Amino acid sequence: MSTWSDDMQHGSPPSALLAWVLRRCEQRPDTRVTRVVIELLGAVPLTEIRVRSWVERPGRRIELVVAELSACGPDGTWRAVARGTAWRLQTADTSAIAHAADPALPPRTTSEPLPEGGFWHSGFIDTVDWNWLTPLGAPGVSHAWGKPNPVLVEGHPIDAVDRLFLIADTANGVGTKLDPREWTFLNTDVTVHIFREPEGEWIGVSAETSYGPDGVAMSSGVLHDDSGPVARVTQTVQVRAR
């Protein structure tokens, strides 16, 4: 359930499901997903859903994979509610030159409390174990660690990359400087560039949102595991006064 409404899904589970499908579409052991773009075409309802995927651009070293999520409406018709694309690259051993451009996230310590109220204690947010290093809304880049616990696909335990995508869509919330009692700030997309596959159960977020003068904002951040940065995330955000 979304933090904004009890009749729509939070963006994280649909995004993570599309990424799950993109990773497994005609999967090859010598490739991995490197950049994933999730487009939220509208509110994802709490109803029956289905996903289809295909290789849009096949190749030996570079492939483009597409997935589409559809939801069943009250009248029984299906409509597309989210779409994902992923570049999948052939891998090679470059461990000798491995380097992370972003600084590591501070380790998990005593957690800052989440604000009172239903917005920060509802739906998907409550399925994640949180360790907040920065008070929400504090100036500058905000930092938090999250360990998602929900089952994404029945019969398949979630792995570290699944956890990465379950956390990625929360960057907008981690980095926000706005009070949700006064403003709405919904993202229309999530873009994740993964330069190293994560490991472990916890995913860290360093994020901040930049606000334009015309109701549009951009959330940008870095995603981490316990060994350091693994990816960058950006989101386009529509901002409105309540």
Rank of each mutant, 00 (worst) to 15 (best):
P103V: 01
M218A: 11
Q90Y: 06
G146Y: 03
R50W: 12
G117I: 03
R50F: 08
V141R: 15
Q9M: 10
T110P: 01
V33A: 12
E199Y: 07
N131V: 11
V141C: 12
R181E: 13
E68Q: 12
D93Q: 07
L164I: 05
P13H: 01
G175K: 05
S142L: 15
P107I: 04
F124Q: 08
V174Y: 03
G42M: 01
S206F: 00
L105G: 01
E116G: 15
Q27S: 15
N149M: 10
V233R: 01
R32E: 15
V216P: 02
G84M: 06
E197L: 11
V239G: 06
T77C: 07
S142C: 13
V233E: 05
E112Q: 15
V36G: 10
G117N: 09
D129M: 11
V65A: 02
A101I: 06
V151K: 02
G155M: 00
V216G: 01
T91L: 04
T31E: 05
E68G: 09
D162G: 10
E116Y: 09
G212N: 03
G204Q: 01
S220R: 12
S111D: 13
F124P: 04
T176Y: 02
A16M: 09
A67Y: 05
L164Q: 04
D189C: 12
G212T: 09
P113G: 01
R23D: 07
R60F: 06
D162Q: 05
D169Q: 00
A104C: 13
V66C: 08
R79A: 12
I167L: 11
A86C: 06
E201M: 09
G59E: 12
G73K: 01
H156W: 07
Q238E: 07
E26G: 13
Y211M: 04
L178W: 05
V222A: 07
H99L: 09
L136I: 14
S219F: 09
I97V: 15
G76W: 07
G204K: 01
T94H: 12
L22V: 00
V192C: 09
T34M: 08
T236Y: 05
W183H: 14
V33T: 15
P157E: 15
I49C: 05
P74C: 06
R28E: 14
N187F: 14
P74M: 11
D7H: 14
V51D: 07
L18S: 10
N149E: 11
D30T: 06
G118D: 15
C72Y: 01
A43M: 13
V51R: 13
W4H: 04
G155W: 02
G228M: 00
